[in-house]
């Protein structure tokens, strides 16, 4: 037979310790944020490689028609625009002080989600239009250098790819990114709401 004091002794002898540290709490919020940053960084690096490749082609191949030079300038402008937009986003999401202002974090994420939506829809559409224009101009010179069937094939493949990227891949990308941001916002808001409801 044990009395309550004996149970208390048992309780204080327990060695079961929490497996969560204060760092884990921070990690949970940071984890989702870092996932986004990494993807943006990969996109920036990818676009930089594409820009270098275009510059190299422009330098190595002696294009003769003005349409090709204009096409390359458009391509480079598109790449530059994309890189600048991505760097802006990357810097925003890497603004470390945000983690120190939890009360502002939800509002920040909402604003960020809006900005990303504009970038991924309106701005991306404009980018695709210019990219298509660039390819059209580029294929003018190519049509004189390549057999007709190859030019048509290249045109069909290029524009099919642009259309596929815009209407299929981009939609999947937007959906995934939105759901990730939405998840972060939802979790933080749920916590905030519970806190307010409980009126501690």
């Amino acid at each position: 037979m044990k009395d309550f004091e004996a149970l208390k002794v048992i309780w204080h002898n327990q060695i079961t310790l929490p497996k969560v540290s204060h760092e884990d709490v921070f990690k949970k919020i940071r984890k989702a944020k870092n996932g986004l940053s990494r993807r943006l960084l990969i996109e920036i690096i990818g676009m930089c490689i594409a820009t270098i490749a275009i510059l190299s082609i422009w330098w190595i191949i002696p294009f003769t028609m003005w349409t090709t030079h204009l096409a390359i300038i458009i391509f480079l402008a598109c790449c530059l625009y994309y890189i600048i937009a991505m760097i802006g986003n990357y810097q925003q999401i890497n603004y470390d002080k945000l983690i120190n202002k939890p009360e502002d974090y939800i509002n920040y994420l909402k604003a960020y989600k809006e900005k990303r939506y504009v970038l991924n829809t309106r701005k991306y559409r404009l980018y695709s239009i210019f990219l298509s224009l660039g390819f059209l101009l580029y294929f003018v010179e190519m049509s004189f250098l390549m057999p007709q069937w190859l030019t048509i094939l290249a045109l069909v493949l290029t524009f099919s790819w642009i259309a596929y990227s815009s209407f299929v891949l981009m939609r999947i990308y937007i959906k995934r990114e939105e759901s990730k941001l939405e998840g972060m916002i939802h979790n933080l808001e749920r916590i905030q709401k519970q806190f307010e409801d409980n009126d501690l």
Binding site: V20, H22, V25, P102, E103, I191, Q192, F195
Partner: peptide, 10 residues
């Protein structure tokens, strides 16, 4: 963990 996330948040 959730408790301390709330603590941090508030």
């Amino acid at each position: 963990q959730e408790t301390f996330m709330k603590v941090w948040q508030n």
